[in-house]
Design a binder for these strands. Structure first.
Ligand SMILES: [Mn+2]
Ligand SMILES: [Mn+2]
Ligand SMILES: [Mn+2]
Ligand SMILES: [Mn+2]
Lengths: 217, 217
DNA sequence: TAGTATTTTTAGATTTATCTAAAAATTAAA
DNA sequence: TTTAATTTTTAGATAAATCTAAAAATACTA
């Protein structure tokens, strides 16, 4: 049985390794988990001992298959609970993350399966993040940032790259929510801000915002 | 912020004190929490420090108003989650307790309120145990054990006093589930077993079982 | 009421997850 | 290719929750 702490480290390592690919260094784990590098060294020794990560001193860590499937399982639970909170309990998309951080550690395989069924086996959470299936497979989508689009390009808002309540509330207020169709009218050369057309209205967003909104072409 | 451990001690004290009335002694807390008396002494000092219990050395403990409302809040969550699991996720009544033991520690007042609304503000959980409202008030019912009934008495099965999966599965198999109307035909003097009439069928249960089934007259 | 049994508390250790400060290894720069 | 900067690991401490063994207090009994 893994502690919440261990699970949070594994999840951090997963996210930092860009979904399980590259090696992750000690300092970045420390930052992600709000701990110190020395604490991380202690913990990664323990996780390596448990067979969840590959660890060579000074070389950073990678997830083993066992660690990877643990991470994906936690992420599945996190995202399913977020769907539950939004779809069934009327939470807003900017309110669900902290509660899901708690719920993701509830242990019961049956519960996860039943919850997924209850929700209609959703493929994405309220932020457009993909929900892996029971076997840990993601049904990958090809999303691009608005900041990579050019005048004339069109698409549908399908995800975000930044999950802070502040940003999500801003999008909500501006009507830039998942499912909306947008077209890029112009990219301002000076500062990279982008003028969009959405529902026959022009909306200007900063380059920073444009980098964090994901579009399905 | 209270740890899961602290919450479990408070809940144990609540249950052992018969819903918050009498004083609870160290050994019984140790038994309930599967720890040793010495561990309990340490923990109750801490809980007293936090203002959750009244503690005088060698005199046992009682809940303060603050401790009482913490306990009731946890019990509310536990029972609401049990309703959720049975009503929405098709769990059986003998399968939900352990999962609810985890879910009862999730911290979010909004979540509890929304969950209660979502479930239609149920007054009782799948075992007939009362669910306190937001203010911690129980809508008390007057239930009696079948073992206290006499030949000729009738009523509706409305709760259980024993929550082990074994017992719940036995009731399920025998059809002795919540809402069923029963009549006592005879109480066997020899061993206290009880012959019931339910849906025109006779069912004999042991005195032990009769003590653990609760009836609304 | 004195003596015994039971319950509770204290004393001292252990495990987990964390920290600070210092040492060691790696990486970058001169 | 030395030297300096950065990163990582080790050493030693601390706080939380637990334990065993022993001491102290309370309760029971003859
Ligand atoms: Mn989230
Ligand atoms: Mn999300
Ligand atoms: Mn229960
Ligand atoms: Mn119950």
């Amino acid at each position: 049985m893994n502690s919440f702490t261990e699970e949070n480290y594994i999840k951090s390592i997963y996210h930092l390794s860009k979904d399980g690919n590259q090696a992750v260094n000690t300092n970045s784990i420390a930052e992600q988990t709000s701990t110190k590098a020395s604490s991380v060294t202690d913990m990664i020794k323990k996780l390596a001992e448990k067979g969840l990560i590959n660890y060579v001193k000074y070389q950073g860590v990678t997830l083993t298959p066992k660690g990877y499937s643990l991470a994906v399982g936690i992420i599945r639970k996190h995202r399913l609970w977020e769907v539950f909170l939004v779809e069934k309990l009327q939470f807003k998309w900017d309110e669900v993350h902290d509660i899901a951080e708690q719920l993701e550690h509830i242990k019961s395989d049956t519960l996860v399966d039943r919850l997924a069924d209850f929700l209609g086996n959703p493929k994405a959470d309220p932020h457009g993040d993909l929900i892996p299936d029971k076997e840990g497979k993601f049904q990958s989508k090809d999303l691009i940032r608005i900041s990579k689009m050019e005048a004339g390009d069109t698409g549908i808002i399908s995800g975000v790259n930044e999950h802070s309540p502040k940003f999500l509330q801003y999008l909500e207020k501006s009507g830039l929510v998942l499912g909306k169709k947008i077209a890029v009218i112009e990219v301002i050369e000076f500062d990279g801000s982008v003028i969009l057309l959405m529902e026959n209205k022009e909306i200007t967003i900063s380059r920073e915002a444009a980098k964090n909104i994901l579009i399905l072409a």
